[in-house]
Design a binder for these strands. Structure first.
Lengths: 198, 198
DNA sequence: ACCTGAACACCGTTCAAGT
DNA sequence: ACCTGAACACCGTTCAAGT
């Protein structure tokens, strides 16, 4: 009757993410997405290339939703908030978030988050390749932690997981402090000799 | 003709891991596994509960293959080798290895590897809950790193990835040194005040 | 321009039946 | 005891056809 386009790429991806959050990734099926949109599965092909592209879009949507802190805040506070935001995102999207570790972070959304981390690290005093290296390590650890937390790999109490996270955050803060020392970013021999034992 | 049992659980899982390594996880299909074993898909149900159980078995097989270092080596060397072994395992099984971050590490194979790390950390001087916390963080980081490396999330050259890994290893070594200090495992205020900046 | 019907090859899974 | 045939509900995907 009406010639209004019923669906578009954005609504397809939004619904797919919704289904993943509610019922898991394996419930994200072209027919399920189409049904919720009141349309047949075949019509989705007018807006997406195939299912793999749909899942790429879902991950990108998760990244797009990712709230970045105000750039005026001190760098330490910014990094701390980004870490918390990652864990929040993982909790909100427990089936989709883990995909972040499995794909090349080459999408616009990934770039945007990465840039925010770079900026904070530069403000922390890192320069050159140290910025990129620290970002990679830091992001890998945060995403790895949040994924573990949300997929049941950590079996301790919530309070213990929180304690682990605080510990991890301190460790990363130290990494940044060491990397920003004038004598180049080597976390090697400073305080005492490493502990040897039987 | 012969009443020899043609297949068993172990051979099913071995073939499934083989197919995953060769053609990816989405090629691991009951029909594909059965075909390679010279049997129909339905016959697999005599040995496994369902496909999810098959994948659990595949992950467990990867862990069972995981070579642990000689317990007589110094703890630092043992941890170093376990880290390298993890990266080797990821390279050999690039589609299966990432699953390690997504499941509760409650299987016998997971327990075996974890125990080896616990032992090394105790020899490093850690005690009590510090042992478990350090193992969790350490394992999460190594698995996260190896997963990133093998799934194309890191886009630098192989040499740069290697440099990142060396850096990560030093960082973890420092974490252990700090945690084993008598004053309790806090990586917090030792050297200088953390760098603040604009 | 956008959606649908019909069709295809392929999934996981059940169950009664064969040897 | 172990494997198979037949069947089912469900996938992703293509393509010609409708409006």
């Amino acid at each position: 009757v009406a010639r209004t386009r019923i669906i578009d790429r954005a609504s397809i991806i939004r619904v797919a993410l919704q289904i993943a959050d509610e019922s898991g990734l394996q419930s994200v099926t072209l027919q399920a997405v189409a049904k919720r949109l009141g349309v047949t599965a075949m019509s989705l092909y007018g807006h997406i290339d195939n299912k793999a592209a749909l899942l790429d879009g879902v991950v990108e949507e998760l990244l797009a939703e990712f709230a970045l802190p105000d750039a005026d805040l001190p760098w330490r506070e910014r990094l701390s908030r980004i870490g918390r935001a990652a864990r929040d995102s993982a909790r909100r999207h427990p089936d989709v978030f883990p995909l972040l570790l499995n794909r090349a972070a080459a999408t616009p959304g990934a770039h945007r988050v990465r840039e925010a981390v770079h900026a904070a690290l530069r403000d922390a005093g890192l320069t050159g390749d140290d910025v990129y290296r620290a970002e990679r390590l830091l992001t890998t650890m945060i995403v790895g932690f949040a994924t573990s937390e949300v997929s049941g790999r950590f079996t301790q109490s919530a309070a213990d997981v929180e304690a682990d996270y605080v510990y991890l955050e301190r460790l990363l803060t130290r990494m940044i402090a060491i990397a920003s020392e004038p004598d180049e970013g080597d976390p090697a021999p400073s305080a005492g000799p490493a502990v040897e034992s039987a």
